[in-house]
């Protein structure tokens, strides 16, 4: 049987948090079997509150302090049911108690939020959970860029670059930039996308995407977007 399989909401726990022994005797009593599943005691020895300061200071993360750890966000979460370990309630907890190591260990999981806002909608304390999670993700991207998923970074950079450069999005151009950042540009002409691309060429949509243009005086708006320092 898989480790900790008897635990409700097992997907929210990581393997190394669970202890199970084949034969376990405590105080002379054999407790092997169903009763030998235990969670490791968590000891807070080092608190690094960097993340907390950063998140609550950001415009999208400032509602984090309203959180009462009720778990409504995680109960309804789209991604918690898909990605083991994705647990918004726990991410907020880690930020507030300064568990930087746990956050960094999960750098590759937190970005998977799909921004569906179920958490924000369910929160009884008006935490904008979806955006708090985004804020935590951004903090991680600054702390440990090397630990972030390549596809996530490529997606974000492609969007950013398209927005900055053109002020408008051409989705085929975005997809091309995303794939070429990952060295996967061949897929553009692969069997999956070829048919759609040919149709768009024929019916004029491809031309429309090329002619989307830029907003007037885009350079000025662009420099506002490029300015750093604002959160």
């Amino acid at each position: 049987m898989a480790k900790g399989s008897g635990i409700i909401e097992r997907s929210l726990l990581q393997d190394d948090q669970i202890m199970e022994e084949d034969n376990l005797v405590m105080d002379g009593i054999d407790i092997s079997g169903r009763w030998n599943t235990m969670l490791k005691t968590r000891v807070h020895s080092e608190r690094d509150l960097d993340s907390w300061d950063d998140v609550r200071a950001s415009a999208i993360g400032e509602s984090i302090d309203n959180c009462i750890q009720c778990g409504m966000c995680t109960a309804g979460c789209t991604v918690a049911h898909e990605v083991p370990g994705f647990n918004p309630r726990q991410f907020i907890y880690w930020v507030r108690v300064g568990r930087k190591d746990d956050l960094i260990k999960n750098a590759d999981i937190i970005w998977r939020c799909v921004g569906c806002y179920i958490c924000t909608n369910h929160c009884p304390k008006e935490v904008n959970t979806a955006e708090v999670i985004e804020s935590i993700g951004q903090w991680l991207r600054k702390q440990v860029p090397e630990k972030m998923d390549q596809a996530y970074l490529a997606n974000h950079e492609a969007y950013r670059h398209q927005l900055e450069t053109y002020g408008r999005l051409s989705l085929p151009r975005l997809q091309a930039e995303f794939l070429s950042k990952l060295g996967r540009q061949k897929e553009l002409f692969g069997p999956d996308l070829r048919q759609a691309a040919i149709r768009m060429l024929k019916d004029g949509r491809a031309l429309k995407t090329l002619l989307i243009g830029r907003p007037r005086h885009w350079n000025r708006s662009r420099s506002v977007l490029m300015e750093s320092g604002q959160t």
Partner: peptide
């Protein structure tokens, strides 16, 4: 112009 498509949220305001 584009609405940002949700991709700039991480940059706060």
């Amino acid at each position: 112009s584009c609405c940002g498509a949700g991709e700039l949220k991480g940059e706060g305001l």
